[in-house]
Deep mutational scan, measured.
Amino acid sequence: VTLFVALYDYEARTEDDLSFHKGSKFQILNSSEGDWWEARSLTTGETGYIPSNYVAPV
């Protein structure tokens, strides 16, 4: 499992996005959609889309 960590805070703009804070960790579920990845937050357990340029591999 590849884990990613948030580099910045992000406020969701749609109900499909995940809001998160810098330092939040994610499991990436689908990275084939270009700049928006489907991810599960390891902090909240919620699933949604995150901007790929806001995260980096742990």
Rank of each mutant, 00 (worst) to 15 (best):
E38M: 15
D17R: 15
N30R: 07
R40P: 02
S52G: 07
I28E: 01
P51E: 02
S31C: 14
L7E: 03
E33C: 12
R13T: 13
Y10D: 00
V1S: 12
S24W: 15
R13G: 09
Y49M: 14
Q27S: 07
D16G: 15
E11I: 13
R13S: 11
A6N: 00
T43G: 08
S24M: 15
A6T: 02
F26K: 00
L29I: 12
L42S: 04
A56W: 09
T44N: 08
I28K: 04
L42E: 09
W37P: 00
G34D: 13
E46W: 06
D16S: 14
E11C: 12
I50W: 02
V5I: 13
S19Q: 05
P57D: 05
E11Y: 10
G34V: 12
T44M: 02
A6C: 04
T2F: 11
N53I: 09
G23Y: 05
D35V: 09
L3I: 15
K22C: 08
I28N: 01
D16L: 14
K25H: 13
R40C: 10
A56F: 08
P51V: 01
A39I: 04
F20G: 00
N30V: 08
T2N: 11
L3A: 06
G23D: 05
L29W: 06
S24R: 02
S41E: 12
A12Y: 02
S31T: 13
R13P: 07
A56D: 05
F4R: 01
T47G: 03
W37L: 08
K25I: 15
D9P: 06
S24F: 11
P57V: 08
E46T: 06
E33W: 10
L29E: 05
F26D: 01
F4D: 00
V58L: 13
I50K: 01
T47I: 15
R13M: 12
L3H: 10
I50V: 09
S41N: 15
T47P: 01
A39H: 01
T47E: 09
T47D: 04
W37D: 01
K25G: 05
I50Y: 00
E46K: 11
L7Y: 03
E11A: 10
L42N: 04
T47L: 08
V58F: 12
N53Y: 10
N30K: 08
A39W: 02
I28A: 02
G45P: 01
P57H: 06
V58C: 12
D9F: 04
S41P: 02
K22N: 04
L18K: 01
W37E: 01
R40Y: 15
E33G: 14
E15W: 09
N30D: 13
L7T: 04
G48M: 04
L42R: 02
L18S: 01
G48Y: 03
T47Q: 10
Y49G: 03
E38P: 05
A6H: 01
A12V: 02
L3C: 11
Y54C: 10
A39N: 01
H21M: 13
Y49K: 14
R40N: 06
T44H: 04
L29T: 07
E11V: 14
L29F: 06
S24T: 15
R40H: 10
W36I: 07
S32G: 11
L18E: 00
S41C: 14
Y54T: 06
V55F: 09
N53E: 10
N30A: 09
D17F: 15
K22W: 04
T14P: 02
S31H: 11
W37F: 07
T2W: 12
W36A: 05
S24G: 07
R13E: 11
S32Y: 10
